[in-house]
């Protein structure tokens, strides 16, 4: 063997990231399926910066937008499962395949950890006659089809969540007319302008108008009180319902990730979640912290998926 080729072989040995124990040896790409500047982008970026510190390699955030999240999610799912491409998964992944918009679902990924959940809260205008969720439910029962709700696209998370609540309360989902909107802010605006009567959404989304005294939050559909508005009653306190659904975000990687790499990443995500910086960041933005480890996260996604599918089929949204 000539000397140059020997040198080349040595170089190749050194450069080759063959052993997972050495992982990571080069920068990691962190895919965010939504645009720069939004809420998912912010959570993704803080996570990426904390992971970078933990893993000792650069973690570069790449926004792969388009297709209402599908493009970015599929970029994560279809990346090489070598631990150098991970990303943030959002609730849409449990919903869009029911509408026939993608084949991907929660099982297309290696879950690394759920980090955020913002449960549905029910908002009305500040001068609305409905003081409690009970009042509102009675009004819907008495005059089906009169009240109108908005806050997301047709078949979006808040639409499905409201219909789930109505079904659980044995009210036909059509009893509330859904007015599609581009985002929760547009729905809230229409609420304040008097165009609609109800806006289901998360507390961080409704925050500014609730603080401004324009919008009243009647209840939060979760077992625990809201982190932003602890005085708002939970579903159980208001009408005795345990129904819960919300917008969530978690960290995921492509399927078939080698076990040692997956464990390394899962531990890093857990440490990032537990860090003071993350807690402070989430509190500032008003986002709900919620942890689920890999197995629980997978089970959580499967459960959500089933629940969403059932409601969407009942609504005629599934294809």
């Amino acid at each position: 063997m000539t000397r140059p080729s020997l040198a080349f072989l040595l170089l190749a040995l050194v450069a080759c990231p063959c052993r997972a124990a050495e992982y990571p040896t080069r920068p990691i790409t962190f895919i965010v399926p939504w645009g720069a500047g939004g809420g998912t982008d912010a959570v993704g970026r803080i996570m990426a910066s904390l992971l970078e510190r933990d893993l000792g390699r650069p973690v570069n955030v790449v926004n792969r937008t388009g297709g209402s999240g599908v493009v970015g999610h599929s970029a994560i799912a279809h990346a090489r499962p070598d631990g150098y491409t991970i990303g943030i998964l959002t609730v849409e992944i449990a919903m869009m395949h029911h509408q026939g918009l993608t084949r991907l679902d929660g099982s297309s990924f290696t879950p690394l950890g759920l980090v955020n959940l913002d449960p549905t809260a029910i908002q009305v205008r500040a001068d609305s006659p409905y003081q409690t969720l009970g009042d509102l439910m009675n009004a819907i029962r008495e005059q089906p089809g009169k009240l109108k709700a908005s806050g997301t696209a047709r078949g979006g998370i808040w639409h499905v969540s409201l219909c789930g609540l109505l079904r659980e309360q044995r009210i036909a989902p059509e009893a509330v007319v859904w007015v599609p909107s581009v985002g929760n802010a547009a729905g809230l605006l229409d609420l304040v302008a008097g165009g609609v009567d109800i806006v289901p959404g998360s507390h961080p989304e409704g925050r500014s108008l609730i603080d401004a005294g324009r919008v009243r939050s009647l209840a939060i559909l979760d077992d625990n009180p809201s982190q932003l508005y602890p005085a708002v009653p939970t579903g159980a306190q208001a009408i005795g319902t345990r129904w819960s659904m919300g917008a969530w975000r978690g960290i995921g990687a492509p399927k078939r990730l080698p076990k040692p790499i997956a464990e390394r990443l899962q531990a890093a995500v857990k440490r990032a979640y537990d860090s003071r910086e993350f807690a402070e960041f989430m509190a500032q933005r008003g986002f709900g912290r919620k942890w689920a480890g890999p197995e629980e996260f997978a089970a959580f996604m499967a459960r959500e998926d089933e629940q969403m599918g059932e409601i969407m089929r009942a609504l005629g949204l599934a294809r």
């Binding site: 047709r154 059509e174 859904w178 609504l315 949204l317």
Partner: peptide, 10 residues
């Protein structure tokens, strides 16, 4: 466009 299904409730 004629072939698009009607949207339930719209």
């Amino acid at each position: 466009a004629l072939g698009f299904p009607a949207a339930h409730g719209q």
